[in-house]
Design a binder for these strands. Structure first.
Lengths: 187, 187
DNA sequence: AAGTATACTTGACTTACATCAAGAAATATA
DNA sequence: TATATTTCTTGATGTAAGTCAAGTATACTT
């Protein structure tokens, strides 16, 4: 549980009451390697805070699995539009390796938002970080060669990139697995 | 002023006090066509809410101006990292056409955040919209052909795309002006 | 209104990367 | 530990889009 509380504490001071309510609502769960965490045919009603492991958020296009992003330790993962707007969206989530998560139901999150005004501040500040990453990614997607994209990826995910299968990285970067394989071979 | 208040009201109920404080802190200003709104060599201490007109947020790479995004009517524009973290960043902002803005100083925004807890909620909800757009843009950047990118752009910016010079759209999409010109010619 | 600068178009050529294909390596399953 | 699956590598070929270049159109400036 410490990891979740530490995560919130990065952004806001946790009062004893809020701490208690978070602990009461968050449940530990372990997914096996390859296990489906969220199915695109359902509404994503839970968010997963990764304590240990790696998740992949992906969708299927022309029969191929395209990675949208990777869920890393110390972060929340979900199907964003599905979770926020309670509607069906295209994303699946599965576990790249055995993954321990703290799951939080959207109803519980809404309760926290409505009960503790400081939760809005937490969301504002943590989303600021996310927006920064997305802007950087948009920039690196547009004007970088395949090799530059991979180098950028490695610098951002330097702790975990070696735990992710090549074809998942390739689709995340929008390049073919063959091209990525050749880039790796050149080093 | 109505436009700014209407913007906040999309997300939160504005109390009379908050309304008064917003009005007191926001100042109307008009930029001429082509005028520099923000210079990358300075820290961006103001955010601009566009009442009428169009801004371009861009940076320079290899001597070329690359559009990062367009500031549209009813939205805030600034140099995000510079404004949020009070540091120098690479973005310039200029006016694509004569543009009327409401400017808000970062110190005034901080005051509003610290004085009115509901401002955090406003930020959380409005950033949610932004994150959605960025995710969509990341997806469309990776697996779309030049033509598909342009079609997607037109659908997102259908009200204003004809007011933006071709070369700015091209760099926004990460394609060459020549390619965009050829795509347009085919219709 | 003429002159200059900027923006856009069109053609010829080049290239980075995709696709197709087949084999090698690694991993999972019996 | 053998067999089946999946993942990765390597080569051959095709193509979308980039670059270079020169001309045309549009828009500022005086």
């Amino acid at each position: 549980m410490d990891e979740v509380l530490a995560h919130f504490s990065q952004y806001i001071k946790l009062s004893p009451v809020l701490t208690k309510e978070i602990i009461a609502r968050v449940k530990l769960h372990t997914f096996k390697k390859g296990e489906l965490v969220h199915d695109a045919s359902t509404i994503c009603t839970e968010s997963f805070f990764i304590q240990k492991g790696l998740l992949r958020i992906y969708f299927v296009k022309d029969g191929k699995e395209i990675t949208e992003y990777f869920g890393c330790e110390g972060e929340w993962s979900n199907s964003p539009r599905s979770f926020m707007q309670r509607k069906i969206d295209v994303y699946y989530i599965d576990a790249i390796e055995e993954t321990k998560v703290f799951r939080l139901h959207v109803d519980d999150l809404v309760f926290l938002f409505n009960t503790f005004p400081e939760m809005d501040r937490y969301a504002r500040l943590s989303m600021g970080t996310l927006v920064g990453h997305l802007l950087e990614r948009v920039t690196s997607m547009r004007f970088a060669s395949a090799k530059e994209k991979y180098d950028h990826f490695r610098s951002v995910y330097h702790d975990i990139y070696h735990r992710i299968p090549l074809h998942m990285i390739a689709s995340y970067l929008g390049i073919s697995p063959e091209t990525l394989s050749r880039i790796r071979a050149e080093k």
